[in-house]
């Protein structure tokens, strides 16, 4: 029997024992994505209709390769945090909810590695 009030229990790191980490990382990745997204739109528009060789040359450039890997990492980190909240809001069955979050997190991780690998394969 604890003498703590419910408020006392959730103070500090809170009931999920995770504090504000989820919220904070969503903001960190959001801030990173603002310039990266604008750069990506500009790059894609400049590559439209230019063909495979141009896209390959673009991705082989060190600056573009690094920015592209950063964009992939920030995108999938941000995306899995966001989808996690959507799943937590709308799926109420505990088993299905955890399974869905697991799939989103694992798939995001795999796709981020795949995307980064593709960039590095062209760059090196």
């Amino acid at each position: 029997m604890t003498m703590q009030t419910p408020l006392g229990r959730v103070r500090g790191l809170g009931s999920a024992k995770n504090g504000t980490h989820h919220w904070w990382m969503q903001r960190v990745t959001a801030v990173a994505l603002v310039p990266l997204t604008l750069w990506f739109i500009y790059s894609i528009v400049s590559l439209l209709g230019a063909g495979h060789a141009a896209a390959e040359a673009w991705m082989a450039s060190p600056v573009n390769a690094v920015l592209m890997v950063l964009l992939v990492i920030a995108t999938f980190h941000h995306l899995q945090l966001g989808l996690q909240v959507v799943i937590e809001d709308y799926i109420h069955g505990e088993g299905v909810k955890i399974a869905a979050i697991l799939i989103v997190k694992l798939a995001s991780f795999a796709l981020a590695v795949l995307g980064a690998f593709a960039v590095l394969k062209v760059a090196f």
Binding site: H52, T75, F76, G82, L83, G115, A118, V119, V122
Partner: peptide
Amino acid sequence: TGIALAVGALLMVCWLVSVAQGA
């Protein structure tokens, strides 16, 4: 739009892989 963009991120990866795979 966030959910739609998550699907769009799949396309971004497809595009990167297609560049790596060839013409």
